[in-house]
Amino acid sequence: MSTTRAAPAPPGRRSASPRGGSGADERRVTWRNRLYRFDVRYMPYLMIAPFFLLFIVFGLFPLLFNGVVSLRNYRLDDPTLPYWAGGANFTRLFGDEDFWNALYNTFGIFLLSSVPQLLLALVVAALLNRRLRAQTWWRVGMLLPYITPIVASTMVFSVFFSRDFGMANWGLGLFGIGGGDTPIDWRADKLHSWIAVATMVNWKWIGYNALLYLAAMQSIPRDVYEAAAIDGAGPWRQLWRITVPMIQPIVVFTVVLSTIGGLQLFTEPMLFDLNAQNARGGPNGEWQTIAQLIYKVGWKDLNLGYAAAMSWALFLIILIVAGINFLLTNRLSGGRK
């Protein structure tokens, strides 16, 4: 037992103390003992308490309370409505064209962003996975988009994708696409606006994902490649046949991560709009995502109950899609089953 400093006080000293203050001594000892016991037994709980308290108040409770709100008439502009709405918010959701439109957009943008994002990240990671001069600086450079505020970069891309003087149209014009007379209006239809928004997402996350892949690639045992070389596999083949299957767990992880992030996309579509405050995502909601619609319903239309119901729907969708993607990538990227 480690009774620490309190131990040196032997029980015999209690009765025959050379000094007069035996009572005080004893009290100090037991007090110390108690303090020690408290320290060992309860201190750990005290140390983890802040996380749990905060999570309960600002994480768990809102999560559950959100369910209650979704069953209520919770309008900030009309408190006179009956308290409970029953399933009305959810019934309305099924017939709401805006919701289905936003769901469609969210998936469209998600596909256009996550697939190229992860494929390009693999390629970039393969490039970084060489013996490089100034290795650290190449890696740090890849993180430039990651540390740039999405708000800031979206404003740049907003100019970049403008119809008349945008650099995107100018660049495409050089290759004979769009041309000077018939510039692409990036905010006029679904496909083009989706591409624009997806470009922003891709730009932001390719470098970050590449570093995740790189970390996994570097922990692949080297003798695997020796075996491959004997079979005569070139670098490109090695990447897809050996490296990717070997880093499968992290690929699955990034797929799930980008699913969760992609389905909650908010800032990019929000600020791509020339009049962001409307949260409409284009004149006819061309690129309005679900997260954006939740914001609009909750804080522009002031219907928090309905927004809460939408949040629940979004949560369910994320769960399902993340689950499907998990299984799918697990299967597709082969390797260990």
Partner: peptide
């Protein structure tokens, strides 16, 4: 429990958080 909370998308509770 801590690890599980890592996976919960925070956006889900945003409406209720605003009310809180």
């Amino acid at each position: 429990f801590v690890v599980l909370t890592l996976t919960v998308p925070n956006q889900l509770g945003i409406v209720a958080l605003y009310i809180v």
